[in-house]
Design a protein around this nucleic acid. Structure first.
Length: 304
DNA sequence: ACGCCTACCTGCTTGC
DNA sequence: TGCAAGCAGGTAGGCG
């Protein structure tokens, strides 16, 4: 999916353009886009007439907070996009859900691969960014668990750009894990929002091999990793995200960050630091790019 | 905890 | 040119 910087870009665009707008009617063209607990028709009935108060982001999910307190979550996954269309814009064959706004515009959820999911939840339980604990669900009359939006994110790790995501906190989390760095960065329960592109970029910047294990890092390396993760994400946001084929902001335009990536999809091209060709390997079924000189192989344990 | 597999989908690129 | 295989930013669930 769009990763943290791409989702942040979309959320900021939407905050500027549709905060205050009222959803007149939603049309669902692909039912499975609507995730539990609502079936698509119920979702359509419940969202009609809702006014959007503000839009922000949690992990890789766009949150549309309604004036009545409910929260619509939009997880873009691989190819999802939220695009504001002016009246008269030709229909989009890949629009899976279309929100007709009262002012005549449309907010379109476009998703070629149909992996993305939209949900509508009672508010509550969302701590300020970077919080850990989730919300407790509310028991409703018939004993049906009614999840609050905070619960959707209870399994997520800290927001890497939050103030409380400190070197110390990262060090503590790393020390308890033996997984490979690449796999950990992709694990949303470890850090929220990092995906395949920014994981590779952060490791290159930190000069850490993707196969290093978490608990093998010394203090200086942890510091570099912490700074690198935040830098690559902030740079991504500043450039409105990295676009290859599908990702676009809410303005429908691709981001500029792809051209500034150091390793991602640069296999065999020279490393910007040392000139050696970038290598591609597969880690945990995900393609992984790194510089074999700048990111030295993990040392075999000096042992028995 | 960890790693590996399959599934969910469609479209573009690559190689024969 | 044609066609099949391989690839893609994500994640959930299952198994060992």
């Amino acid at each position: 999916m769009p990763e943290l910087p791409e989702v942040e870009t979309v959320a900021r665009d939407l905050q500027r353009w549709v905060a205050g707008a009222t959803i007149r009617e939603a049309t669902v063209h692909w039912d499975r886009t609507i995730r539990h607990p609502q079936p698509a028709e119920q979702f359509v009935a419940e969202i009609a007439g809702a006014t959007i108060r503000r839009i922000d982001r949690r992990a890789k999910t766009v949150l549309l907070h309604m004036v009545d307190g409910r929260v619509m979550t939009v997880a873009l996954r691989m190819t999802g996009a939220l695009i504001v269309a002016e009246p008269g814009t030709p229909p989009d064959p890949y629009a899976r859900v279309v929100f007709a706004l009262a002012d005549g515009r449309e907010l379109r959820y476009r998703d070629t691969r149909k992996f993305g999911r939209i949900g509508l939840w009672p508010g509550g339980g969302l701590r300020s960014v970077g919080a850990g604990r989730g919300a407790r669900s509310r028991k409703v009359a018939e004993g049906v668990r009614q999840y609050r939006v905070g619960e959707v994110f209870s399994g997520h790790g800290p927001e890497p750009l939050a103030r409380r995501f400190t070197v110390r906190r990262l060090a503590e989390r790393l020390s308890r894990r033996s997984a490979k760095l690449k796999a950990l960065l992709l694990d949303q329960g470890f850090i929220a929002g990092v995906g395949n592109i920014y994981a590779d970029e952060a490791l290159w910047r930190a000069r850490l091999h993707p196969l290093r294990t978490a608990d093998s890092l010394n203090e200086a390396e942890i510091k570099r990793l912490h700074r690198s993760v935040r830098q690559v994400l902030r740079q991504g946001i500043a450039n409105r995200g990295s676009s290859f084929s599908d990702y676009v902001g809410a303005d429908g335009e691709p981001g500029e960050n792809a051209e500034r990536l150091a390793v991602y999809r640069r296999t065999d091209q020279p490393c910007y630091r040392c000139g050696r060709p970038i290598r591609r390997i597969v880690v945990g079924q995900r393609s992984t790019h790194f510089c074999p000189r700048c990111q030295p192989e993990p040392v075999a344990s000096v042992e028995p």
